[in-house]
Design a protein around this nucleic acid. Structure first.
Lengths: 212, 212
DNA sequence: TGTACATCAGTGAACGCGCGTTCACTGATGTAC
DNA sequence: TGTACATCAGTGAACGCGCGTTCACTGATGTAC
């Protein structure tokens, strides 16, 4: 907080933009969505509030840019897994684990993109994420898993993995299960099983029959 | 908005309290959590802001009281179903349907109690809700459904049904599936199936074996 | 090599806004004498 | 039956706060002559 910031050299004003986005992400992580204000970002960057407007036309644009960063880091994590996994169901499961793990590791970021008011571009990213899962489901269908409607199945899958993240991150951290990796794995298994078997309403007899 | 409110008779100042809570619920439903302000409640009740403080010590208490109302109406709906349903798995399924339906019918209320900052009493209600589901799961166990850990299974179940609500209510309404009743039913089936079968990680072979 | 100038990353002070909250006051109503 | 008084549901005006945003200004730096 002490000392003064060195001003960016002539053509490099854009450096501040990246720095502001870094800080926005950090504020979000530390203090939740309410902590993400123009003034806090400016202060934390050792700059006055109007300087932010040199790089973002409004607060919405700053938030929006922050959302896009979150989405892209999620995609990076999703695409890092399930390469070279031959079994498509296992690949789907690992994708779910990765998704849940990402959400639990970045609760505020996750809340921002899922609970915050949706901008158009953020909605497009949500769609892209949905399609990513649907492709994974389609691969299972191609491999012979009988699925009535891939889109509907994907919706159920997404709602389940989203719930696995959402339920925890809206609780105090000391309420979380002790082993989050295990939780993510179980929740992913549950989500995949559920989505692939959702056709008939469950009853005592059908559940008994399904049990391995 | 025109005309003036009749002042409550001498001993009946408490009438306003109930009216304020009714209005708070309505504002929430119409405009979301941000629309729930002391000033909006007062204006809508044709009363000045300080009058609210005759019945609630702070905004938090008003919000808190509103949360309690939401929880109790959820419990009413949950307990209205699955009475006299002999099959405990079916009863569990119906409970899930009822939960999801409640959330989809009262999106803002649901968001308030699940996404809003948790007061102690609201947390207790969340716990009670969890225990309600766990009792339903326990009934399935008693009937012979093999479940490793009822608490863990219930957590998975709750996260799935929560996700089914949460994913939709954070989207524009025109993105919702056309038949919400069908969606609730499918999502509930998926949640129950998933929770009861989550033990082993899914693969192509296990999923094929499970398929009826 | 020196100087005038355009560029541009930032500053400093202020704006209006809606919010939660406070405080002194009012005016109708039931009650005691 | 009339009057003084305590009660209490509400009013009206104002407070400070943090917020997003605006506007005129500054001062270092590269460039043209």
């Amino acid at each position: 907080m002490t000392g003064s910031r060195v001003r960016a050299p002539k053509g490099q004003g854009g450096l501040l933009r990246e720095q502001l986005l870094d800080i926005a992400g950090q504020l979000l992580e530390d203090g939740g969505p309410d902590a993400l204000t123009i003034r806090a970002v400016a202060t934390s960057a050792r700059v006055t509030p109007p300087a932010v407007y040199l790089h973002f036309a409004s607060k919405s644009e700053l938030v929006h840019a922050t959302c896009l960063r979150v989405w892209s880091s999620l995609f990076v994590e999703l695409e890092a897994v399930s390469r070279a996994v031959p079994d498509p169901v296992t690949a789907l499961h690992e994708t779910c684990v990765s998704y849940i793990t990402f959400g639990l590791r970045h609760p505020s970021q996750y809340r921002l993109v899922m609970d915050g008011e949706a901008t158009e571009a953020s909605r497009q990213n949500a769609d892209a994420c949905f399609r990513y899962f649907r492709d994974k489901v389609a691969a299972c269908v191609d491999a012979g898993v009988p699925v009535e409607s891939p889109t509907e199945t994907t919706r159920l899958l997404c709602s389940a993995v989203h719930g696995a993240v959402s339920l925890l991150i809206h609780q105090e951290r000391d309420m979380w299960p002790p082993d989050t990796a295990r939780y993510a794995d179980r929740a992913a298994s549950s989500s995949v099983h559920g989505a692939l078997l959702s056709a008939s309403p469950p009853s005592l007899s059908t559940v008994a029959a399904l049990r391995v």
